[in-house]
Write a protein that binds this DNA or RNA. Structure first.
Length: 334
DNA sequence: GCCACCGGTGGC
DNA sequence: GCCACCGGTGGC
């Protein structure tokens, strides 16, 4: 995929992750390369779309697309973990002019567009970099047809430093959060917060010398378009009062309509949101995980939040636990 | 023991 | 209500 025109990007595009079950992607393929992108999209189960709320009215958005040409997400293929969570399956951005959605072929391109989207609004012409003939006259690549989860991404998030990867991992529906953001260092360490990044950089000054700064990291997560994807905190408080009743209220019982493109998870994992449900609603959504046991759950142990003083101690005393350096000892040379 | 996923808390 | 943070947990 060579780059030709470095097109203009839309202003305030919406970043969208989507679950991939739609036929429309292939319907709009217009070049061989795009065909390939579309196919890889279609093969990827449970993708998610993200789009930018601020711009949803005027229309800019991005859609997410999984690791290219991977038939299945990492969770399903290489991860020994049995839980299969919905994963970001496609990246899409909305044209600032015609408001149509254009699939972005790679996560890297998406991150590039997202970083500069405010300054350089995305247009269909931008996509000519990978789809030479695309224009606003072509139909939208994807639409909110109920077959995917759409989530709103934040604009102006810096691209991760070279050699680093920014991971957005979706949580299952009904949890307390929609997703988590992680950064994977060149040495393979996973960092979960700005504090951890800061500590890591202090422990590895070679990255600082190489120009890596905290401003290149953002742990902002996309927001699900489906309002009830994430459990409300007020619900949790209610549950503390009366668990059984609250559970009834919390879990919607909707007809399950399994997508033909859903990936097959472990049979014992039926309590996981591995399928999507076209429900005819305007916004796509994942199947809610069934309630495995509506009985009152055992009380959970309370955990005291570490004090600020403790947090500061952590910052002052870098953790020692870390994976042995693997491929990137060259960092020391920076 | 590791680690991906999840929940709970304080702060704003 | 949202966000940042990070400890807990269970499957491997």
């Amino acid at each position: 995929m060579q780059s030709q025109a470095q097109g203009m990007f839309p202003k305030d595009p919406a970043n969208t992750y989507l679950d991939e079950t739609s036929q429309e992607l292939k319907d709009h393929a217009s070049t061989d390369e795009h065909d390939e992108d579309v196919r890889s999209c279609q093969n990827a189960p449970n993708q998610i779309v993200v789009y930018d709320p601020e711009t949803s009215d005027t229309g800019q958005a991005l859609c997410v697309h999984p690791a290219e040409h991977e038939p299945l997400p990492k969770y399903a293929v290489s991860n020994q973990y049995t839980k299969i969570l919905p994963s970001i399956g496609a990246f899409t951005v909305q044209c600032a002019e015609c408001l149509k959605w254009r699939l972005i072929p790679t996560k890297e391109k998406y991150e590039e567009i997202r970083e500069y989207i405010k300054e350089e609004p995305f247009m269909c012409a931008t996509a000519r970099e990978w789809r030479p003939n695309i224009s606003c006259d072509d139909p939208t690549d994807i639409s909110q047809d109920g077959s995917r989860v759409w989530a709103i991404d934040k604009p102006s998030i810096a691209q991760p430093p070279t050699g680093w990867e920014r991971l957005v991992r979706l949580r299952s529906e009904g949890g307390t959060r929609f997703a988590d953001v992680y950064y994977i260092t060149p040495t393979g360490k996973t960092l979960r917060s700005t504090v951890e990044v800061e500590n890591y950089l202090l422990e590895h000054p070679e990255f600082i010398r190489a120009g890596v700064t905290l401003s290149q990291f953002s742990f902002q997560i996309p927001k699900p378009l489906q309002k009830d994807y994430v459990k409300r905190r007020s619900y949790k408080k209610a549950r503390q009062q009366d668990d059984a009743i609250a559970l009834e209220m919390l879990i919607p019982h909707e007809p399950a309509e399994v997508s033909p493109l859903s990936w097959a998870g472990p049979t014992q994992s039926t309590d996981l949101p591995i399928v999507t449900r076209p429900d005819g609603s305007s916004a796509p959504c994942f199947e809610a995980p069934p309630v495995s046991d509506p009985v009152v759950p055992p009380p959970k142990k309370k955990r005291a939040r570490p004090s600020k003083k403790y947090t500061k101690k952590l910052r002052d005393e870098p953790k020692v636990k870390e994976k042995p350096q693997q491929a990137w000892d060259g960092a020391n040379e920076l």
